[in-house]
């Protein structure tokens, strides 16, 4: 073994003397420790019985007030009895080791981690003998063939995973992550009551979480998938206090604008609305979007403006979508250049 080099200004005085413990020299102390250990162990069966009583006797909905906190009585008492019993087993074992078992420290030797040179030599010789016996030296293709065959088998193993999910080809992307169920004429509905939103009922400064009316046709996984893309927020702002670019003049109704609720950073639903500044803050990573300025990013890690949904009103004055979103909602992805999305200064 290669020891680290060090100089020793003070010579090693050798192992320190072993001082006897209290329990080594005083029989009464040892007896006391003995009684403590046995006492702790004797408490365990009592606690186990208590656990069983709690399990069968305490009703599930009973409550317990402990230090001003409302606790579920059954959970708390089961845990207290089992926890203390377990703790007592542990404490008694360690008390036993510390007080009654011999505490003489012993010294063992260390050897280097490396095998002795003879052993290395022997293994190398054995390896050589084995290689020779295998005939791989004379018939070289055996080794190459085996390695190649094993290597090729990685392909089926990997390729078999190709059905883990549908392939996001351009065609599939256009049907999935690039599309929502918004379409021309789909009504905007309140996302709790599913009632249609009437333009005249919204007041300036109000924000409504909304969904497409058609969402109700979906259930289970499909519902979650559509909701994860189609969720929107509808806000009404004073048209004179916001900037509406020329190209989006007819995307709004008297200052009622509609944006995707899905953050363009990692896809959290955005919800914190600052009425005065028209800013919308994502509670996950604090990206902030200016809804008074076509949803551009004003702060935080998001890089793309919030997609805006073009809306209008139907004959009865209810808000309806004019089309789907013009760009995909949610986080950017590799296959699409998102730099052409709306940016500050676009008309």
């Amino acid at each position: 073994m290669n020891d680290p080099q060090t100089d020793l200004p003070v010579p090693d005085p050798g192992l320190e003397e072993h001082p006897p413990r209290f329990t080594d020299v005083d029989d009464a102390a040892a007896d006391r420790a003995y009684k403590q250990i046995v006492g702790m162990l004797a408490a365990v069966p009592v606690l186990v019985v208590a656990f069983l009583v709690v399990y069968f006797a305490v009703p599930r909905d009973a409550e317990l007030v402990l230090f001003g906190a409302n606790l579920k009585m059954q959970t708390t008492l089961l845990g207290l009895t089992a926890g203390v019993a377990t703790l007592l087993i542990g404490i008694s074992a360690i008390h036993w080791a510390r007080m009654l078992m011999s505490d003489e420290e012993i010294v063992g030797d260390r050897h280097g981690a490396a095998s002795p040179p003879e052993a290395r030599e022997r293994v190398l010789t054995d390896l050589e003998t084995g290689i020779e016996a295998s005939g791989i030296r004379r018939r070289k293709l055996l080794g190459t063939g085996m390695a190649g065959a094993l290597g090729m088998m990685a392909l089926p193993a990997v390729v078999s995973l190709a059905d883990m999910g549908p392939w996001p080809t351009a065609e599939l992307r256009a049907k999935t992550i690039e599309k929502t169920i918004w379409a021309e004429g789909v009504h905007l509905v309140n996302d709790v009551t599913f009632t249609r939103l009437k333009a005249t009922e919204l007041v300036v400064g109000q924000l409504v979480n909304a969904q497409p009316e058609t969402l109700q046709e979906y259930h289970g996984a499909a519902l979650q998938q559509q909701k994860a893309k189609a969720s929107i927020i509808v806000v009404r702002m004073d048209p004179n206090s916001i900037r509406i670019p020329e190209s989006r003049r007819d995307w709004q109704v008297d200052g009622i604008l509609c944006y995707s609720k899905i953050c363009t950073h990692v896809g959290c639903p955005i919800s914190l609305w600052e009425q005065q500044t028209h800013h919308l803050l994502c509670p996950c990573h604090q990206s902030t979007f200016d809804l008074g300025n076509s949803g551009v990013v004003v702060f935080g890690p998001a890089a793309r403006a919030l997609p805006q949904l073009p809306i209008t009103t139907d004959a009865e004055g209810y808000l309806v979508a004019r089309s789907d979103f013009t760009v995909p909602v949610g986080p950017s992805y590799f296959e699409r250049d998102s730099s052409k999305d709306f940016q500050e200064g676009d008309r």
Binding site: P4, G108, D109, R110
Partner: peptide, 10 residues
Amino acid sequence: PGRTNRNIQG
């Protein structure tokens, strides 16, 4: 004291 790189004490 007494503990070296070549032994183990405990």
